[in-house]
Amino acid sequence: MININVSGISFAYNGCSVLHKISFHVNHGELLAILGPNGAGKTTLLKCMNGIHTPEDGAVLVEERNIFTMSQNEIARLFGYVPQRLETARLTVFDSILLGRKPYIKWRVREKDIRMVDATIRRLSLQHLSLRHIDRLSGGELQKVSIGRALVQEPKILLLDEPTSNLDLKNQLDIMSTIKNVVNSHQISAVMTMHDLNTAMRYADKFLFLRNGEITACGGCGSINPEVIEKVYGVKVEIEYRNGYPVIHPLDDTGD
């Protein structure tokens, strides 16, 4: 059972405050969606959580250990990170996912590493693309490779930066079900930043709303109401339930 405590994180770019005393908690096996308008600090918060950015103040505690006292390799064994911008190269899908074993590979690749990659490729239904170069993949396939790479890191926490951006509807649903399934089957926690509120409502267990680097609301589905959405995005909305999922409708075009 691994819980994450983010405690009082503050971060500034060139003296300009981006995050101000952010504190929240992610329980074992939970899928948390960080939501908020552009520039709210979502990606910065995610990068502070795995040490890509070092905050000015605060701590990220995993099993009572502050990750900022750990080596980068130790952090890479705890957090699997899927960035928003995915780069391509003339690497095969298999080798790209194998790269996720980097925090464990000392000198040579072991049989265990190869088996893990193979299992992950099957898990993500990428067998038919295994030896294809990743510069020949579609956006959805590339996103799956990136998730696969993060999974073979054997992370306790998966961090995903806008995993469905630039994907069509079918691929959005495919990627989100993949994430939900791996969180359940691997018994790990996941934190993702998102723009699409309805997709987040459908798949996440918990929601954290950021505005101007501060938390506006945090909690389960029950914590989301039109007032919170208006406060965060400046848009009046109504929420209705369809098939048990909340669906958010903007009430006007301008948000005025």
Binding site: I52, Q72, E74, A76, G80, E87, K102, P103, Q153
Partner: peptide, 20 residues
Amino acid sequence: RWNFNAIEAGDETAKGLGVK
């Protein structure tokens, strides 16, 4: 060699894999 492969996959991916 693994660090170069990781950087080839993008700076943020490389940092997420523990590369300085």
